[in-house]
């Protein structure tokens, strides 16, 4: 199925994928309100402005895909949401990120608590190689000094939700690096889930994976979306069409990245309002 859709890039096929995905969800997305709100986000690396005035609401219990050509600031944007942006030397930002109404950049905020609520899965699978599969999943508890009553239950639950349990349940004490790339990425998802984040950021989680693993992770995303807010950066428009409820299109015309358009995924792919969006989703550039 993955292969057949990926071969076609005609607009009609994309919008039909999005429409099919939307109908499958049947408005079942538990949009209970805004979980995360970005207000006027600007970002700099040194003197270079790379993001200009991004404002976006992320509704609880939905999947939002961020698409756009390389270098348009999608990754930078989601890294501002859990304050990972500031790790890069020379990085600066302006604007507000409201998590349940509170600005995560407010002075006196414990950054580690923000990152517990806003988890992240990276482009390249990055399990801790010195830890076993089980220790990897539970690593967050140790790192953030959390206590849970039953670690074994949590371990099983997280691996089940990440769609990895059946593949690893007999070798939980093997090292994380012994898994395949796709399995490692699902292990990283399980690891993020163990600290029970409200929001999960995924920065091109499938870009290093084969189509089969990609499909598994997309299924995982669909299963997770009922209980949490997911924001996924992807270069793969079919993926955006398949997994997301909302899509935001980023673009940089050589200057800072901007948010061109945001809306329901089916709208973005079938009747975009902006001509640049239409050109991009129909494959005329990018």
């Amino acid at each position: 199925m993955t292969n057949s859709t990926e071969k076609e890039t005609t607009p009609s096929s994309l919008s039909s994928v999005a429409a099919a995905a939307a109908s499958k969800k049947k408005q079942s997305t538990g949009a209970q309100g805004v979980g995360l709100e970005a207000r006027g986000i600007h970002a700099w690396f040194g003197d270079k402005l790379v993001l200009e005035d991004i404002s976006l609401d992320f509704w609880s219990g939905t999947v939002t895909a961020l698409i756009g050509p390389s270098g348009c600031g999608k990754s930078t944007f989601i890294r501002t949401l859990n304050r990972m942006h500031e790790f890069i030397p020379g990085a600066a930002m302006a604007g507000e990120v409201l998590l349940n109404g509170r600005d995560v950049y407010e002075s006196g905020t414990d950054v580690t608590k923000i990152r517990l609520k806003v988890g992240m899965v990276f482009q390249k699978p990055n399990p801790f190689p010195s830890m076993t599969i089980a220790d990897n999943v539970l690593a967050g508890l140790k790192l953030a000094q959390l206590k849970v009553p039953n670690k074994d239950d949590l371990l099983e639950e997280c691996l089940l939700r990440a769609g990895l349990w059946s593949e690893v349940k007999d070798r939980l004490s093997a090292y994380g690096g012994s898994l395949s790339g796709g399995q490692q990425q699902r292990l990283c998802i399980a690891r993020s889930l163990a600290v029970r984040p409200e929001i999960l950021l995924m920065d091109e989680p499938c870009s290093a994976l084969d189509p089969g693993s990609t499909l598994r992770i997309e299924e995982t995303i669909s299963e997770l979306s009922s209980s949490m807010t997911i924001i996924i950066v992807t270069h793969n428009m079919q993926q955006a069409a398949r997994v997301s409820d909302y899509t935001g299109f980023f673009l940089s015309d050589g200057g800072p990245g901007q948010l061109v358009e945001v809306g329901a995924t089916s709208d973005i792919f079938s009747r975009p309002k902006d001509i640049r969006t239409e050109n991009y989703v129909t494959g005329r550039f990018g």
Binding site: T112, K113, R115, F122, F128, G140, K142, A144, S192
Partner: peptide, 24 residues
């Protein structure tokens, strides 16, 4: 990427050093 993985899990700097830097 390992350092970032630890931080993204809400790790303190000391916990990150213990879990990632020292083993490496």
């Amino acid at each position: 990427d390992r350092i970032q993985a630890a931080y993204a899990l809400g790790s303190t700097r000391w916990a990150m050093i213990k879990a990632v830097v020292i083993p490496y």
